[in-house]
Design a protein around this nucleic acid. Structure first.
Lengths: 242, 242
DNA sequence: TGACAGAAATCTGTATACAATCTACGTAAT
DNA sequence: ATTACGTAGATTGTATACAGATTTCTGTCA
């Protein structure tokens, strides 16, 4: 079965969340024995997980051996978001150019309907639903290209630290005009799908790029919102002062 | 020292070249013990290397355990080349928009001069020099953006199977009009740098995308050139019939 | 007091041992 | 003949042991 939890999976999830929590955010080396004991497994799967996170960019190798938590500037994260926009943009352009599978398109629109439902309840936006459906939308979007590679790379770039489409969605109460921004985002969602249907590749690409920029606004705001916020947004503590 | 050859490095290089040679191209599982003995190391660094090649896309995991050599369609490789064009295009666009470091720009132009020198000798094109300088050019190009992330990702996408800027350069004698194509490529190189200097981001981006398309032409030709060629071009034997 | 050398302790990279799982083959039943 | 099943062998995932390198600590000397 593919959903069998292996020790490596445990190590990966556990280590990632430990790192994102900021507990090891200094530039010290990650101690393998201590971590493996803490996670309840041996060094072998832990080191596997460390390799994986180095590839993801969350950790960086130390010349003399071992890893440390990587540090990011605001520019780094903005670049990562930009790159996500570019790759998602390419996926939707290819979907438009090559023609998307109607079944997949229909499924995307069902997701968009559910997002509408989450947003249009007056006085009560269902944030949890939005977050989960938004993630689905972005996953399905890459799928529309019909290219396994695009799907994989879009997925990958979303895992870059703080570049995910959902990175800042949990911080509703911290960001001003947040629900207005969600409505704008959903409008862009619709426009992207419309462009794909109309085989307007360039338009779809530009829309996807612009869509990613919404995350930059939120990031910039949170980064300047003072130190108290850093501890509440997972991963934000990895931001170095420049 | 960072140039200390570790067992993992040996495993990575050895395994990659074994896989690219096509010897294991069937869909059978890669036997770890046999491979580790053959490469003269233990299973630990070998498995590390396998993880790395899975992330690179050269191997794929098997549900029930272990890895096999991934198989590619022509479409897969064309997508990889397209993606390389997109990412290199983004890097040069950012370089143009943000302004490239003059020192780095000067170095890029020195490389271009050396490519000219390799190409303009009548009756004798220095292919080896071209290959090496071309690789330098592409590496430096990503560097111009000033973004570490772009550099890393451009590097990464060049390692996708058969998507590297140099993937088909060694097959000069197999491809018709090859030297003409090299001249065209160099013309595009110059234009890209010119666009960066002029801060013409969109132009730089489009040029880089178009530049990547040159590789697609070569790929399409080699893929249809019959079975004899597959054994001569490293990695081409991984192409599945569709 | 500060710098430096050397030794002790710690830690990583690698090899190997082990257990759970998968694969393959052979046997039996339909 | 073909399918189901069970067992034996092989193979992976994981833990642990070990050696070399690195960091840290301590004591000495300037």
């Amino acid at each position: 079965m593919s959903d069998r939890k292996t020790q490596f999976d445990k190590a990966l999830l556990g280590l990632r969340s430990l790192v994102m929590s900021g507990e090891f955010a200094g530039s010290a080396r990650l101690p393998e024995v201590a971590l493996s004991e803490r996670l309840g497994l041996s060094r072998t799967p832990l080191r596997q997980a460390m390799d994986h996170l180095v590839a993801e960019g969350l950790l960086e190798r130390i010349e003399t051996g071992g890893c440390r938590v990587a540090r990011f500037t605001l520019d780094d994260i903005n670049d990562a978001i930009e790159l996500r926009g570019v790759i998602e943009g390419t996926a939707v352009r290819l979907a438009a150019e090559r023609g998307a599978d109607p079944t997949a398109l229909a499924e995307v629109e069902r997701v968009l309907d559910r997002i509408d439902a989450a947003l249009t309840q007056p006085d009560h936006i269902d944030f949890d639903a939005y977050i989960s459906e938004n993630a689905s939308f972005h996953r399905l979007l890459a799928h529309l290209s019909g290219s396994q590679l695009m799907q994989r790379e879009a997925d990958r770039v979303s895992r870059l630290p703080l570049a995910s489409p959902s990175a800042f969605l949990r911080e509703q109460e911290l960001i001003p005009d947040f629900s207005a921004s969600l409505l704008r985002a959903q409008h862009q969602h619709r426009a992207i799908v419309e462009a794909i249907r109309a085989r307007e590749g360039a338009r779809a690409e530009h829309l996807a790029r612009e869509h990613a920029r919404l995350a930059r606004r939120n990031l910039d705001y949170l980064a300047n919102a003072g130190p108290g916020v850093a501890t509440r947004v997972p991963g934000l503590s990895l931001l170095s002062a420049e």
